[in-house]
Design a protein around this nucleic acid. Structure first.
Length: 326
DNA sequence: AATATTCCCAACCGCCCTAGT
DNA sequence: CACTAGGGCGGTTGGGAATAT
């Protein structure tokens, strides 16, 4: 399925993204946003063109992407909107939260188009046999209506969302913990919580997750606010060099990749940042807030505690993070 | 079991639009 | 107005997985 890794003329990588590349992209975008896709790979430590990074993030890595089976309702929506809009995949995707235009396009070409063609043939045959028995023939408007009805009576089995992240675990892999999903009215703090949730998921080995974590589609929505216990527990063993499997969609699996710890994440971001993280907000090149997506970023004053020198002392790191929630 | 074919989808490519200069 | 850069969109492709022979 994946393309063979290769290099283009300028030496940039092409083809399948590796878990390490995904990790770098996720860590960078969740922390700094996508302020300029063309410049981003350089600062994120990626040997990819910006376009490739954007595509990877938009179609695969960003939070809240639904993957897996389509529901009957979703398929009906796609069929209806395609009849209205044609191949305007992005416009169709606007009506299907969590689905990307690319995924909808693929689903259309691989599944829905064929089904509609088959159903049209069945319908036409039934009309022919019907017309031999009855007359007069229906008007063209009536036939169109019937064809539309055929589309909406597609008999494929209704499926449920079972994955809200690309590499979600099987049900046997999840364990239990309760989560507070109370909404917060403070948008800035929610953005920060989102970021922290993501980082936590990336680095913390000791957490467990609720059984329905992967079946709910909005775990990284702003409505998702982890409880205090969640965060306290999340940072209990910050230096444990283990991988927290499956919580993050693309976290390395224990059997195949190395380990991730919180300080590693910070170290690589620090090493790949230019200019340095300390002057991120003061450097006009880096601090164009108008380009920072507010749904994953927050205002500089809210993040400023994260950039204090003392925060780079790993002993203080988790306390500082937790403190931001209290 | 080996090989061929089909399916599926992540990723690429090229074009177009918009904003800035 | 022309040019350029950045981003978005739709069409197409590559190749692994699944299925058929």
């Amino acid at each position: 399925m994946a393309r063979t890794p290769s290099r283009d003329k300028s030496g940039l990588k092409k083809g399948t993204w590796t878990p390490e590349e995904d990790r770098k992209l996720i860590a960078y975008v969740t922390r700094y946003g996508y302020w300029n896709w063309r410049q981003l790979p350089r600062f994120a430590g990626l040997e990819r063109c910006g376009k490739s990074c954007r595509l990877r993030w938009m179609n695969y890595l960003r939070p809240n992407i639904k993957r897996g089976n389509y529901t009957q309702e979703e398929e009906d929506t796609i069929i209806r909107l395609h009849a209205e809009l044609g191949n305007k995949w992005s416009a169709i995707a606007d009506h299907l939260p969590g689905r990307t235009d690319n995924e909808i396009k693929n689903h259309w070409h691989t599944t829905l188009k064929k089904r509609i063609q088959q159903e049209s043939v069945v319908h036409e045959n039934s009309q022919v046999s019907k017309s031999k028995e009855q007359s007069p023939v229906e008007s063209s408007e009536e036939i169109d209506t019937m064809q539309n009805n055929v589309h909406f009576q597609s008999n494929s089995a209704t499926s449920q969302f079972t994955e809200s992240w690309p590499l979600s675990p099987s049900s046997s892999e999840v364990s239990s913990i309760t989560k507070d999903t109370t909404a917060d009215s403070n948008a800035n703090s929610l953005a920060l919580e989102d970021e922290l949730a993501f980082l936590e998921a990336y680095t913390e080995p000791a957490m467990t997750i609720s059984e329905n974590f992967w079946t709910e589609t909005n775990k990284f929505d702003v409505s998702y606010v982890p409880s205090e216990d969640f965060w306290t527990e999340a940072f209990q063993s910050p230096t444990s060099p283990q991988v927290f499997p499956n919580v993050c969609p693309l976290s390395p699996q224990p059997s195949s990749s190395g380990s991730l710890v919180l300080e590693d994440d910070f170290a690589f971001v620090d090493a790949s940042m230019e200019p340095t993280i300390e002057n991120f907000w003061t450097d006009p090149y880096m601090a164009d807030l108008s380009q920072v997506p507010t749904d994953i970023f927050t205002q500089p004053e809210d993040l400023s505690p994260l950039f204090d020198d003392q925060l780079w002392d790993q002993d203080n790191l988790c306390e500082e993070y937790i403190g931001l929630f209290q």
